[in-house]
């Protein structure tokens, strides 16, 4: 996997306009630096549109392109991140941290490689807290947006019978597979894609630490996969967004069973 990087240099005002044309051409994100902007396209060089080329010619903008291999850009942070303890029961650490001597029931080793879920973020912390609160023994668990696989791994270690982690990001899935291996949780199933790939099954526990809109858009799909008396645990949004989910829950006849906030973030659990 590689990208083609384009760096455009020229007058700042002209680059501001060029950015708008680049977004129209399908570029997804732009970095601005003094007198230059950089944009990336996946794969080989894409042709710049006539609009972009003509605008560049008229506004003295030059560009260079180069090929950039995909890599773990988060490596510097990951090299010395601090282990995270959640309560007394669960420790999330990197492979280079010492093995905890005592008192930790669930010792999880996570090398994130640009996937989400290390316990540093309040939402992961809250989701882990919810899992510890409810327990997973004998339950089937669906982890929607599994990222590093941290919640799926914890559920398995807690005694879940069947665990499925899904994610739309191929990098995350590859990373989750590595983390399953490291933690001896190879029985956890992984699949690439959105909820519609989960064709059958009703899960006693559905986990979704994604974003407000993603959960709202998939609310009914999530519920369709939840067993009778099952628990839906959601996070990835701010406490200020709670009203959206209060309403969704009430409209669906669900009772909110548990909620917890950390910093400005919130996790909520609904029982069917």
């Amino acid at each position: 996997m590689f990208y083609t990087s384009y760096t455009f240099t020229g007058p700042t005002e002209s680059l501001a306009i060029l950015s708008a044309f680049l977004f129209q051409d399908g570029f997804e994100c732009i970095e601005e630096r003094p007198q230059e902007i950089e944009a990336y396209a996946p794969g080989t060089e894409v042709g710049l549109s006539a609009v972009v080329k003509n605008f560049m010619a008229k506004n003295k903008i030059q560009y260079t392109s180069r090929r950039v291999a995909n890599e773990n850009w988060n490596a510097i942070w990951e090299a010395d991140y601090q282990a995270v303890a959640i309560g007394n029961e669960c420790l999330i650490r990197a492979a280079h941290h010492p093995v905890p001597q005592q008192g930790v029931t669930y010792d999880l080793v996570i090398q994130p490689k640009m996937s989400f879920g290390t316990g540093h973020h309040p939402t992961t912390y809250l989701m882990v807290s919810a899992l510890l609160h409810y327990g997973a023994t004998g339950k089937s668990v669906l982890d929607f947006g599994t990222g590093t696989g941290v919640l799926a791994i914890l559920a398995k270690k807690m005694g879940a019978t069947e665990v499925l982690g899904i994610d739309i990001d191929p990098n995350s899935l590859e990373n989750a597979a590595e983390n399953l291996q490291v933690n001896g949780c190879q029985e956890v199933h992984l699949a690439l894609g959105d909820l519609d790939l989960v064709k059958e099954g009703r899960y006693a526990m559905v986990l979704a630490n994604v974003s407000r809109n993603t959960i709202l858009e998939r609310w009914h799909a999530l519920l369709a996969l939840l067993a009778h008396d099952g628990i839906l645990i959601i996070s990835g949004f701010y406490a200020s967004d709670q009203a959206y989910f209060d309403k969704q829950g009430a409209d669906s006849g669900l009772t909110m069973d548990w909620s917890q906030a950390k910093d400005e973030w919130l996790a909520m659990a609904f029982r069917r």
Binding site: Y3, E28, C29, E32, Y40, W73, I76, S115, H121
Partner: peptide
């Protein structure tokens, strides 16, 4: 300084290299 679509930040470049090179946790 970046221009990003609302709700759509992800670690692909340029976000990944721009933040990662400064040791910032990209996913955060």
């Amino acid at each position: 300084r970046l221009q990003v679509k609302g709700g759509a930040a992800n670690p692909s470049p340029p976000i990944g290299p721009a933040l990662g090179s400064k040791g910032v946790n990209i996913m955060e």
